[in-house]
Simulated scan of single mutants.
Amino acid sequence: MKNYKLTIHMMCLVLLLFSCSERIHDYHAGFVVDEQGKPIDSALVYEDLAESHVTKTYTDSTGYFKQKRQALMDLIVAKEGYLTDTIKVVWHQAGETTEYSPIVKKDSTKIVLKADNAKQRSTIVLGFYSICCGTPNGEELLKYVGMFIQHHDLKDVKITLVSGLGKEGEHDFLIEIPTITKMQKAVFLENLKNLAKMAPKKNSDGGINVSETENIKGRYTNSDRLTFKEIDLKSLPNE
């Protein structure tokens, strides 16, 4: 009888301990937002595992992600223009109790990425090319460039028109920016690329390539046949 009672007590103790243990998901889930609470689209999310075992996931337009968990390793969240964040998934308190991040306990956890405000030098190239009958109209792009410089109060920006790249008016605009944050650059490039896609082509089959370069001299190997003209920022198109 005593053994029976002891067994019952042991079973109750085990059930009590089991019921008190935290239930965690077999996946990570949550929302990635900026410091203003706005969702961050296409943020990269992955576990801190060896490269051969990493499964990468990206947030959707609402900033949401859900990823099957392979282990209880740290979770890394990255996005250009933001500081990469490492989320600790599990840790131990005084070597006795185990704590789990909300990211494996519920689906609504918010991860806030801070903007990377470190400034750097950047040279953006607007490359106007022609397949037939001339290059597209880039007035809207240049108008946006002027507005962007003014809005962000960017100093000592230099814009150079490089002409003579082809027989149908092919040319480049080099936009040299001494100091710009990663976030500003990411926004600048994205908007320029969108405007380039919508640039009026008239009878042209050409287009506008938007890119960044670190080697201006290497880009123009036949510079003796080209013309380089610095553009007065005040002459840029405006509203």
Score class of each variant (00 low, 15 high):
residue 152 H to R: 15
residue 62 T to P: 12
residue 131 I to W: 08
residue 11 M to R: 13
residue 23 R to S: 13
residue 57 T to W: 10
residue 190 E to H: 15
residue 156 D to V: 08
residue 114 K to R: 09
residue 203 N to D: 14
residue 115 A to N: 09
residue 124 I to A: 03
residue 236 L to Q: 06
residue 5 K to G: 04
residue 132 C to T: 15
residue 121 R to D: 09
residue 154 L to A: 03
residue 71 A to E: 10
residue 19 S to Q: 11
residue 52 S to P: 15
residue 80 E to D: 09
residue 41 D to E: 13
residue 52 S to H: 14
residue 228 F to V: 00
residue 150 Q to N: 13
residue 113 L to P: 03
residue 60 D to K: 04
residue 186 A to C: 05
residue 169 G to Q: 01
residue 40 I to E: 07
residue 23 R to P: 07
residue 121 R to F: 00
residue 196 A to S: 04
residue 204 S to M: 05
residue 54 V to L: 04
residue 160 T to N: 06
residue 230 E to R: 03
residue 59 T to Y: 10
residue 13 L to D: 10
residue 199 A to E: 05
residue 153 D to K: 15
residue 15 L to N: 02
residue 19 S to C: 08
residue 7 T to D: 13
residue 148 F to S: 00
residue 204 S to K: 04
residue 175 I to F: 05
residue 104 V to N: 05
residue 178 P to M: 06
residue 106 K to H: 14
residue 28 H to E: 05
residue 14 V to N: 01
residue 49 L to Q: 06
residue 55 T to G: 05
residue 83 L to Q: 05
residue 183 M to E: 09
residue 98 T to V: 06
residue 198 M to L: 09
residue 226 L to M: 00
residue 217 K to G: 02
residue 211 S to Q: 03
residue 131 I to Q: 11
residue 128 F to V: 08
residue 170 E to P: 11
residue 227 T to S: 10
residue 16 L to M: 11
residue 221 T to C: 01
residue 200 P to H: 06
residue 170 E to Y: 04
residue 106 K to R: 15
residue 228 F to L: 12
residue 98 T to F: 06
residue 44 L to V: 06
residue 127 G to M: 14
residue 236 L to H: 00
residue 153 D to W: 06
residue 237 P to K: 06
residue 38 K to N: 11
residue 209 N to V: 10
residue 12 C to N: 14
residue 169 G to L: 01
residue 144 Y to N: 01
residue 204 S to F: 08
residue 229 K to E: 08
residue 78 A to K: 15
residue 151 H to A: 13
residue 69 R to E: 04
residue 31 F to I: 09
residue 39 P to E: 12
residue 118 A to S: 14
residue 115 A to Q: 13
residue 140 E to Q: 11
residue 58 Y to V: 12
residue 196 A to K: 03
residue 239 E to Y: 12
residue 140 E to Y: 07
residue 135 T to M: 02
residue 153 D to G: 14
residue 239 E to D: 09
residue 33 V to K: 11
residue 94 A to C: 12
residue 71 A to M: 13
residue 113 L to H: 04
residue 94 A to H: 12
residue 34 D to H: 00
residue 136 P to E: 02
residue 129 Y to N: 00
residue 236 L to V: 02
residue 217 K to H: 04
residue 148 F to Q: 09
residue 7 T to H: 14
residue 30 G to M: 01
residue 186 A to N: 12
residue 7 T to Y: 14
residue 198 M to V: 01
residue 87 I to E: 09
residue 158 K to N: 11
residue 161 L to N: 02
residue 14 V to E: 03
residue 206 G to N: 02
residue 69 R to P: 06
residue 213 T to C: 00
residue 167 K to V: 10
residue 9 H to N: 13
residue 138 G to H: 10
residue 180 I to M: 01
residue 108 S to N: 12
residue 160 T to R: 11
residue 59 T to W: 09
residue 183 M to K: 05
residue 199 A to K: 01
residue 117 N to I: 12
residue 89 V to E: 03
residue 146 G to Q: 07
residue 236 L to K: 04
residue 18 F to T: 11
residue 2 K to F: 15
residue 227 T to L: 11
residue 212 E to Y: 08
residue 195 L to N: 07
residue 125 V to H: 05
residue 212 E to F: 06
residue 184 Q to R: 01
residue 83 L to T: 07
residue 161 L to P: 04
residue 207 G to S: 07
residue 78 A to Q: 12
residue 3 N to K: 15
residue 66 K to L: 03
residue 25 H to W: 11
residue 26 D to L: 08
